[in-house]
Design a protein around this nucleic acid. Structure first.
Lengths: 354, 354
DNA sequence: CATTGCAAGGAAAACCTTTTCCATAGCTCG
DNA sequence: CGAGCTATGGAAAAGGTTTTCCTTGCAATG
């Protein structure tokens, strides 16, 4: 309507127009228990509408010490895994009227520190850390008074309230699946070991080898970054080994997809020549050719649960034990028994390997 | 040190400890031009350190009417395309000390409205809209006074300052490429036509058909959502047609990947049986088997440029004409000439089609 | 009639900064 | 010696809310 006023209306403007005090306006606004005459209320509401008044959140926050904003620290938002976790966080926050401020760290510890700094400066009401961060012990200090309003998805070294997934167990699950399918020479491609997630998955793989009496072949464990390119390179490494593995477990689906290129470049096929299995079960797994067996992590649910846990902390409830979420192996074509391997397996069956 | 005070120190605490007024503390803090005695300054700095004082951004913002935060509205952050755009925005914002508040709309117009509402409430200093939004004319009103601090990536119907890519031209480029390779029966799979991006790409495709004298075959234009599943379904539709297309242009790479599954399920191959070409050139394109020809959109640069444009608006500079970014066709295996088609092409060459 | 209680409303403090304006003291200059 | 300048410092307003604590009428109760 007409000229837009440069500065939006304040509560004082409303009070003036409604011929009452700002106290009354405030009461109407927050429908306080303090009674206000029905007629006055109508005048106020009318004035609010006429002026298109909306309370200034800044002023409110200054007083209430609540910004209705929570901060989320994620290693890499373009990773579909974290994108989904963030989605869970945002939806849960939304339900309680909170907004989420996202800080990307790109897995760099100084960007992490900077992120925390910004979030504190913005006066967020709580923190959610995702991905953990290995060997980054100083975090507790950075959080200061916010320490009691922090939730971690995964581990962080510090013992903060958390929502977790048993990554170690997940690796064992994957290896078990491969063993059952008759694969024995199993390699592992890890992501950057700067997140506890990656540390746990690797640990789990090693334990699984022991558990199933398989030996760790030199060169069968590759470390890279969680990218297509890195998966490709790791696979090339594996392909160059004198004795190539029969099956490969990838610490994340992205790396697996990258590796598929290396495999097909050599004219090799999955699962005929290699079985592969990924982590995270991103949507593409069921659309790839062949479809990819992957460990499903309840990404959305993790984000959601972490946020709810955070709200319970904010409400002053005492933190309870870490919340564990189940993982699940989704079997698809990439780990089917190839004919060749079925034969192999027959042969092996006679050997008392385990 | 020792026990953490529940409420962090204020400027008053610092002043008391340094035995001076808050005015002086403020001056030291913002190293104002107003002189302050070297010894006093030292006392203040000491007090700041001792109390671990950090100014309250809320109070500062209340006064300055600057939150050092900009809002970004994106249709879908889990889409790699937007993830990359957001990355560009964040990096550029970072450089100027700004923080980005992201609002996902999931392409729903009420979530969009809600997002705008939240951003206004949080007093962001400016807006960036991505993806455009078709048939959503009321936006200008929602923005109100922020209208002059809004930048759009793409079009929005309203004429706001923008950073653009010629999607229409891009479609023409793609079709031209296919025609040059000898393909004539070209289909198009569109995403949801609620974003101007999608509208423009479709428009471009239609114009390209005209330009190259190809006719629009009924059923050759499919509309879906920008998802793997939707791409898969669209492809199934195309495959069920009495005469299948020779080449398909997909409005985004995700849909293309979904379609690849439908193709391989039929035992068909790319590019032998179909040429396919995508939009966005996400990283996976060069890792897929076959590698995928796609239209490269400078996603990161778009985000970056939009943010810089926004800052120039915030500084009070007058908006200039829309900024155009070039698109580029990245040719890969998925549009190689199949032997079969080369023959076809020879045949066709005799016909005076265009 | 005096007292109590309630409905309705307002004044002012508090939240934490920045900024404008003023104060003091010591100097310099004409 | 007075005017004006500089170096240094503080008081107070402003920014927009919420909340605590009054105040004023009026009706009900004894």
């Amino acid at each position: 309507m007409g000229v837009l006023s440069k500065n939006s209306a304040t509560i004082l403007d409303v009070a003036r127009l409604a011929r009452c005090s700002i106290t009354t306006v405030s009461r109407v606004l927050n429908n306080s228990s303090h009674k206000v005459n029905e007629e006055t209320r109508k005048r106020v509401l009318e004035a609010i509408r006429a002026l298109d008044y909306r309370p200034n959140a800044l002023a409110k926050s200054l007083l209430s010490k609540r910004t209705m904003t929570i901060g989320a620290v994620v290693p890499d938002i373009s990773n579909p895994y974290y994108a989904e976790v963030v989605r869970g966080i945002q939806d849960a926050a939304d339900q309680e009227g909170y907004t989420v401020l996202i800080q990307n760290t790109d897995r760099l510890s100084d960007r992490l520190k900077r992120g925390i700094h910004i979030l504190r400066e913005k006066n967020v009401d709580g923190f959610i850390f995702t991905g953990g961060l290995h060997g980054m012990e100083g975090i507790g200090e950075l959080l200061c008074e916010l320490k009691e309003r922090t939730v971690v998805i995964g581990r962080l070294g510090e013992d903060l309230p958390s929502v977790q997934v048993d990554n170690e167990q997940a690796s064992i699950l994957a290896v078990e699946h491969l063993v059952q399918k008759g694969y024995r020479r199993i390699a592992y491609v890890s992501g950057a070991l700067c997140s506890t997630t990656m540390v746990d998955r690797l640990e789990g793989f090693r334990n699984a080898l022991k558990k199933f009496n398989l030996q760790e072949v030199p060169g069968y464990i590759q470390e890279g970054k969680q990218t297509l390119q890195s998966g490709y390179e790791a696979m090339r490494q594996l392909l160059s080994l004198p004795e190539t593995p029969e099956a490969i477990l990838f610490a994340n689906d992205q790396m697996l997809f990258g590796a598929m290129k290396a495999i097909s470049e050599e004219g090799l096929r999955v699962p005929k020549d290699f079985a592969v299995i990924g982590f995270d079960n991103v949507p593409l797994c069921s659309y790839f050719d062949p479809t990819i067996t992957s460990i499903e992590i309840p990404k959305y649910e993790l984000g959601q649960a972490a946020t709810r846990l955070l709200f319970s902390l904010i409400r002053g409830e005492t933190p309870h034990a870490p919340l564990w979420f189940p993982v699940q192996l989704i079997e698809r074509e990439s780990t089917a028994e190839s004919k060749l391997q079925s034969v192999d397996r027959q042969k092996r069956k006679r050997l008392p390997t385990y």
